[in-house]
Design a protein around this nucleic acid. Structure first.
Length: 507
RNA sequence: GCAUCUGUAGUCUAGUGGUAGGACUGCAGCUUCCCAAGCUGCAAACCCGGGUUCGAAUCCCGGCAGUUGCACCA
């Protein structure tokens, strides 16, 4: 008997309990598209809120925008996406295997064919008698496979547009206005959350490889001459991060290097303070979200792995049940995009710094909300013989924070509990009220979706005005006066107090 | 995309060429009980489209979706 995969168990709970389900399910579904249900949406909002707090609201020099999802072809012509997201593929007529045309040409004839038009690729293949690498069969004509979704704008289809493959381009094409808003003073950052689309050849692994996904991106613009004058450097210099250097990758690594930001910069393992800042903040963010520090690291990507616009990528990878997975991409985009758009559009993207005109450089953290959410789900999933599975979500990410139950329906317990539930909602908690079934079943239901605290109203509540609070992680209970409840739950949720501090454990 | 295996209520599953049973979940009621699975009742399914056949959920073909392997992958 084969052990059921962790991912399958998580998919099962997610679909059954209203986290995430396949899109257009009743019509058979579409590969690579998922829809977030009530609980999934609450979690997604919490991830976005935390990111916004850390990366945007806490920094006076960062503002958030919301750009258009559909953009004209000219944008992607300039950005390089049309070229580098548009791979020429050839198929073997015999065994139907697919190859990238330029790759197979390079392999078989050492001719560098990247970026050549289809006819030329066909000609090189014919001239050099290149055959299928698997079965030596004849190759069909090269075809374009575009990773971008194409659309026609206008009733007569006059303008070709594409769904954005990353949110970043909105920021680059609005740079002049945004720089004006920031009064043309560096450094500054522009953030954006939203959907991006990539027509992946084979979407797989649930939320990890999809065709529509939410990204949280920031373009941090700075003067490259001042790349080590980050405003908040002092606050992060002593923080430690996990790093996998290129040297480690060549030698074969088993454990990432744990290193302080300061040491990483001194040893030139981290390129500059702007990248260091991103690494530090992302590490903190994931820890708050319930992902243990020892299951993720930053890997300095090899040259050939980095995107076309990047002069160096330090991607955050997590150790998941299916293997190592990129969760966050951190790119040094230099002035690549601004230069491209300035040139293509004829707009000046220069900013005056110390009486010199420069085009700023960019450090970009690109966070995939779905991938982060899946990582949290996997790392919080518990199957420890309790009789049911549960999620050990911290309150910061738990879709619902409190459940309120009357021990029984009668004798006014239900009314008491319902009023308490309303009060907690008014106080800002995501509270859930449930009367149906036995109390044990309700605890199990709450555990399964990771509600941290269950409050039960019993007969003593009516007499003394106190309730029991059950801790999901330990199944222990304490008795708390109703008037203290908001404070107690608040301190517990913030991790400011231990459970036992508020009263004796009830057996 | 290629190959492979797979597709029965919300979930897990039984099943035969004559249109489906079970368990759990859910809902209502009983019970009044502090860790799901006490009792009664109800609701709920053969992925879609063709074909073969008197008749198909069962056989065949195609599609869709998923698994695994390969390829691809910001």
């Amino acid at each position: 008997m084969t052990e059921e995969r962790l991912m399958d168990k998580i998919i099962e709970v997610c679909t059954r309990r209203g986290f995430i389900s396949p899109a257009a399910e009743i019509y058979g579904g579409v590969g690579g598209f998922y829809e977030y249900g009530p609980l999934g949406t609450l979690m997604m909002q919490k991830i976005i809120d935390l990111w916004r707090q850390i990366f945007v609201l806490d920094d006076d020099r960062v503002y958030e925008i919301s750009g258009s999802v559909l953009l004209p072809e000219s944008v992607f012509q300039a950005s390089g996406h049309l070229e580098s997201f548009d791979d020429p593929l050839v198929q073997c007529k015999n065994c139907k295997s697919m190859f990238r045309a330029d790759d197979i040409i390079l392999d078989e004839s050492s001719i560098k064919a990247e970026g050549l038009p289809l006819e030329e690729l066909d000609k090189i293949i014919a001239d050099n008698n290149i055959k299928c690498q698997k079965c030596q069969g004849n190759l069909d004509k090269a075809k374009q496979f575009n990773l971008m979704f194409k659309a026609q704008v206008g009733s007569t289809g006059g303008t070709t547009a594409y769904l954005r493959p990353e949110t970043a381009q909105n920021i680059f094409i609005n740079f002049k206005r945004l720089a004006g808003f920031m009064r043309n003073k560096l450094p500054f950052g522009i953030a954006q959350v939203g959907s991006s689309f990539r027509n992946e050849i084979s979407p797989r692994n649930f939320l990890l490889r999809v065709r529509e996904f939410q990204q949280m991106e920031i373009e941090m613009f700075y003067d490259p001459a001042k790349e080590n004058e980050h405003e908040h450097y002092e606050e992060i210099r002593d923080l430690k991060i996990n790093l996998v250097t290129r040297e480690m990758q060549e030698k074969g690594w088993t454990k990432p290097l744990k290193i302080s930001i300061e040491e990483g910069l001194e040893k030139k393992l981290i390129p500059n303070q702007y990248m260091a800042f991103l690494m530090a903040m992302e590490t903190e963010m994931l820890k708050v979200l319930g992902v243990p520090e020892d299951v993720f690291w930053f890997r300095h990507m090899q040259d050939h792995e980095a995107p076309h616009y990047s002069a160096g990528n330090y991607d955050l990878e997590a150790d998941l049940s299916i293997g190592h997975m990129e969760i966050i991409g951190n790119a040094l985009r230099t002035d690549y995009d601004l230069q491209k758009h300035a040139k293509a559009s004829g707009t000046s993207y220069e900013i005056v710094v110390d009486d010199k005109k420069i085009v700023p450089h960019v450090a970009e953290p690109s966070l995939g909300v779905g991938r982060i959410l899946y990582t949290i789900l996997e790392k919080c999933y518990q199957d420890d013989g309790r009789g049911w599975t549960w999620f050990k979500f911290p309150s910061t990410i738990a879709p619902l924070e409190i459940a309120v139950f009357p021990l029984m329906k009668k004798d006014g317990l239900a009314e008491f509990a319902y009023d308490l539930h309303q009060d907690l909602k008014d106080a800002g908690y995501l509270s859930f009220y449930d009367v149906s079934g036995k109390i044990g079943k309700r605890y199990a239901r709450a555990d399964e979706i990771g509600i941290p605290y269950c409050i039960t109203v019993d007969y003593d509540s009516l007499k003394e005005g106190s309730v029991t609070v059950r801790d999901r992680d330990t199944i222990k209970q304490i008795r708390v006066p109703v008037e203290d409840l908001e404070v107690v739950i608040g301190e517990l949720s913030e991790g400011e107090a231990e459970f036992e501090e508020f009263g004796g454990i009830i057996s």
